[in-house]
């Protein structure tokens, strides 16, 4: 067992967890933050993307014990005062989703893109979303949503 202290969506948390606990399991099963989805569980699909110290990572491929002292932001942590994040707004407005399973990861990954590149081109958006798989939309509206969010952020 490892005792870990970290910050999740601005809230300080200390828990004792088995050493092999994945971050995705820690978030979903211990903190009940089920907005982070687990699709493939093999770090390919990107549904589980969260931010660790501001950078996007796949939470199914990180140990919670390894993130002691980190600041973690999940999809539940990006709305402010009940108002959706501009990226969420854009996905809603432009139908950047159908079933919605991949959406938490898409949104978290796309926010990280705009942190690195404020005005990405279509190609840059598609390159960046290489690690996020959507089986419904064909990506067209996702790319449009990321561009819309870029114009608002």
């Amino acid at each position: 067992m490892s005792k870990i202290s970290l910050e999740v969506n601005g809230k300080k948390i200390t828990k004792e967890v088995p050493d092999h606990t994945l971050l995705s399991v820690f978030l979903r099963e211990i903190l009940n933050l089920t907005g982070t989805h687990v699709g493939c569980d093999t770090s390919q699909c990107g549904a589980c993307v969260v931010h660790v110290d501001g950078k996007s990572i796949k939470s199914c491929t990180a140990f919670a014990a390894d993130l002691n002292g980190s600041k973690i932001t999940t999809i539940e942590g990006i709305a402010q005062n009940g108002k959706m994040h501009p990226m969420q707004e854009a996905f809603k407005k432009l139908h950047g989703l159908q079933c919605g399973f991949c959406t938490p990861g898409m949104v978290m990954s796309a926010i990280d893109l705009l942190q690195n590149n404020k005005k990405p081109s279509d190609t840059e958006i598609r390159d960046w979303l290489e690690g996020n798989i959507c089986r419904c939309t064909g990506y067209q509206n996702i790319v449009a949503a990321v561009k819309e969010a870029a114009s608002k952020m």
Partner: peptide, 9 residues
């Protein structure tokens, strides 16, 4: 290499 999340770790 990989994707942005792999490159971040």
């Amino acid at each position: 290499i990989g994707d942005p999340q792999v490159r971040n770790r």
